[in-house]
């Protein structure tokens, strides 16, 4: 993976994208305005509605040990009954080449709207989890995760 990239080419790539020095694997397309791209993707997802605060909690380290594997979890406060449950949680990332990281799809049989995985973060960025409830409302939580350029680990 990234260890195949020589220091010199990493530096060259760094001149074009902030993320390049951190995560060369995802840097090739870091140049476009990913924040605008993410905002557009979120707008499309909610149909223009502004998600409300509360109910949803995004777990993300404040500082990632390494951007290639960052533990990420979401949980939404919901009774999870057929009458009222969380349909989906979509996780958006603001500085990765693609705006969506993962979408979790829940049902009342999930018992709890809770899920976690490991994600890649190309640079220090905002991660936004948006919950789509069964009544058509949206809730969101945003966390910033610092992706550092390490000594030997980075």
């Amino acid at each position: 993976m990234s260890q195949n990239l020589s220091r010199r080419s990493a530096l060259k790539a760094g001149a074009f994208g902030v993320g390049a020095a951190v995560l060369p694997t995802l840097s090739a397309f870091a140049a476009p305005d990913t924040v605008a791209q993410t905002n557009a993707a979120m707008k499309k997802y909610t149909g223009g509605k502004v998600p409300m605060k509360g109910k949803i909690k995004l777990d993300l380290p404040q500082i990632a040990e390494n951007g290639n594997t960052v533990p990420m979890g979401v949980s939404v406060d919901s009774p999870m009954t057929p009458a009222s449950y969380v349909k989906e949680v979509r996780v958006f990332v603001s500085k990765n080449p693609l705006p969506i990281a993962v979408t979790f799809l829940f049902t009342p049989e999930s018992g709890a709207a809770k899920a976690s995985t490991h994600i890649r973060l190309a640079a220090t960025q905002d991660v936004i989890a948006v919950a789509k409830m069964s009544d058509g409302t949206f809730y969101s939580d945003t966390k910033n995760c610092k992706v550092t350029i390490g000594g030997c680990g980075g």
Binding site: I63, N68, T69, G151, C152, G153
Partner: peptide, 21 residues
């Protein structure tokens, strides 16, 4: 060492899963 923490360079965890790799 920049944002990373240096260890004692112990080898009791190898082969080890590196988050980077």
């Amino acid at each position: 060492i920049r944002a990373d923490t240096l260890s004692q360079g112990q080898t009791n965890d190898f082969p080890t899963y590196r988050l980077k790799a």
